[in-house]
């Protein structure tokens, strides 16, 4: 059974249809990518899954239970965490405090265990633990953003443009971490501009255009698909 399944989701802002008839599925332990140009609704879709927007129609189910319309904090409590676009860190709080704010309902010992596990995964966060989040470099901020989301011990991690604005070397490192997270048993739903990179890491991918799903398939098939190559990979 799929961990996350979205069926015929519609979202409206006022009288404008932003998303229509979106369906997608993320299997347990899968890595699924959503591709598409700027402004086609990728970020909006992730935010809707996280509960920031209330869908007009359709069903969002996590682990077989409907989560559509739940407020964001309840979605996190169910096991879906997001490292959002623009990172949205607590800039005037320390790195450590950012991690602590991301932790949900765990005692001090569990918190330490979790934090130390993430520090092992992202050593830079250990070095910078007392520094303010706003003073980190872009790559470090992205690591902190992902680590903060993982502090909630999610079963599904939503990643919105993790490579945005990062140097190529840093991008490669972020994607190494994504593979590691997935290897650790957390399913990942990834929104990414860099389609080639995303397809190289994902098992399955969807292509979003103008608020609709226009294409889907195994990543291996899409990377060879002429239409995808022409529209999204040509220049990249």
């Amino acid at each position: 059974m799929n961990l996350l399944s979205v069926e015929s989701l519609d979202l409206r802002f006022g009288d404008r249809n932003v998303l229509s008839g979106i369906s997608l599925a993320v299997p347990a332990n899968g890595l699924v990518a959503i591709l598409g140009r700027n402004g086609v609704g990728k970020t909006t879709l992730l935010r809707t899954i996280s509960g920031l927007y209330r869908p007009a129609a359709g069903r969002i189910a996590f682990d077989g239970e409907s989560i559509g319309g739940l407020p964001p904090h309840k979605v996190v409590a169910r096991g879906i965490a997001q490292a959002p676009e623009g990172r949205q860190l607590f800039a005037d709080l320390s790195v450590e405090e950012n991690l602590r704010a991301g932790a949900r309902g765990m005692n001090q010992a569990a918190y330490r265990r979790e934090r130390d596990r993430l520090r092992a995964m992202f050593p830079i966060l250990d070095e910078r633990s007392t520094q303010l989040a706003g003073s980190l470099s872009g790559g470090e901020q992205q690591m902190l953003c992902i680590a903060r989301a993982l502090m909630a011990r999610p079963r599904l991690l939503l990643l919105d443009e993790p490579s945005l604005g990062l140097a190529p070397k840093m991008v490669a490192r972020v994607f190494e971490k994504i593979d590691a997270i997935r290897a650790g048993g957390v399913a990942v739903l990834l929104v990414e501009q860099n389609a080639r990179l995303a397809l190289m890491h994902a098992d399955h991918a969807y292509v979003l255009d103008q608020g609709r799903m226009v294409l889907e398939g195994p990543a291996r098939a899409l990377i060879a698909d002429e239409r995808v190559v022409a529209a999204y990979l040509g220049g990249a």
Binding site: S50, A81, A83, P84, Q88, A101
Partner: peptide, 15 residues
């Protein structure tokens, strides 16, 4: 402090 620092970030962090 988290909410006053970044309200959207707080929502994503499950607050």
């Amino acid at each position: 402090r988290a909410v006053s620092s970044n309200l959207v970030g707080a929502q994503f962090s499950g607050i």
